[in-house]
Design a binder for these strands. Sequence first.
DNA 1: CACACTCTGTAACATTAGTTACAAACAGTG
DNA 2: CACTGTTTGTAACTAATGTTACAGAGTGTG
Lengths: 209, 209
Amino acid sequence: MKENLRSILSEAGIEDELIQEIQKVGFPKTARSGELIITPGSTSMHMPIVLEGLLSVVRQDEDANEILLYYLEGGETCAMSLACCIEGKRNDFKVTAEDNSVLWMIPMNYMDEWIQNYRSFRKYVFSSYQTRFDELLETIDSITFLNLYERLYKYLLDKKQATKSYEIKMSHEQIAQHLNTSRVVVSRLLKQLENEEKIELERNRISIL
Amino acid sequence: MKENLRSILSEAGIEDELIQEIQKVGFPKTARSGELIITPGSTSMHMPIVLEGLLSVVRQDEDANEILLYYLEGGETCAMSLACCIEGKRNDFKVTAEDNSVLWMIPMNYMDEWIQNYRSFRKYVFSSYQTRFDELLETIDSITFLNLYERLYKYLLDKKQATKSYEIKMSHEQIAQHLNTSRVVVSRLLKQLENEEKIELERNRISIL
DNA sequence: CACACTCTGTAACATTAGTTACAAACAGTG
DNA sequence: CACTGTTTGTAACTAATGTTACAGAGTGTG
């Protein structure tokens, strides 16, 4: 597991000295597929780096309607939790393990020091910020400029890419929640996609063709 | 103008030494109401700080459909352009002066040094990032969880707050573009808002009651 | 004031998405 | 296999949003 962390950070250009420190002060956290990792309203004092697996980051409103913001894949981090912490603000997200996952948790109090002392870490954090920002923009694009049929298809393709599997194991109801629509609508559009031979439908499984 | 800059940065907790440097290496830029400041596809090498006025940041798709992301008000900055520059990526936004505005342009190449050397500047930049991120989330919330009637009313209230004026001087067509809908729809819903005595309509002017 | 242009109001209709209701298929468990 | 709970398919209907078309009001300019 520490080897995994090393290769991820090394890949990101972090020097050995800092990697060792990150290994020393952080700790691992595992989550089983479907497990809720962060609930809205909680305040976390750690920045997580995804070592293995896949997390979904979902936004909720007061009535518990939901929409998927983005996935966090292996190697990625959520620098947002940083600012979330600096400003002592509460978390507005729901983070769920979409797959059995392993995270490396870094206590926040080291952040400022590392950002000051390591150019590479600065770059890593800013780049992470930027990636999240870009993903939010892409989400806005989808919601704004695509109709539901297109959004659903894009959702399936994105999920395929994130899981690196052409088989998606979800119920229509789960998909509907990520898109903030109803199950019936999703079933209708999925059937349409199947008729156009873009996917194949089975119970709890969708194959992307 | 430099006094304005000083008070803004001082307010943000930046120390005198750095303020003077920012004054020295930056330069002012004025824009008249309605002027296009940043076009999609351009690459900027400066981080702008809004000294006076109001900017709108708009997202565009290939077909030139648009949606308002957020406003930049006096005192605010767009740290996004920073990462945009670090990564050498192109700008995906359209930034327009909603009002006669004055910006202070800071060349990018000083950023990394200041972030390293000034804790206060680090905080300023991260806080700016976070503010933009939060605004994107609020935009997503509006698009996702509100219907057009509610979104339109929220749009008017936001604009009222941003301009600190209960009179909004825009045509229905302009509003429709910010919300990515059609003029006819906006007129219809505005009329409804007027009937419910939340606003008053005149040519090129909407008064918030 | 005549003209051109922009802006607003409104009706009629089309399309998209959401809702309700119900039946049938499937999967797990005793 | 009988029972139960979940999942999917589909029809019929409602609601929200988008489109087209046109008329009239407002504004600036010669």
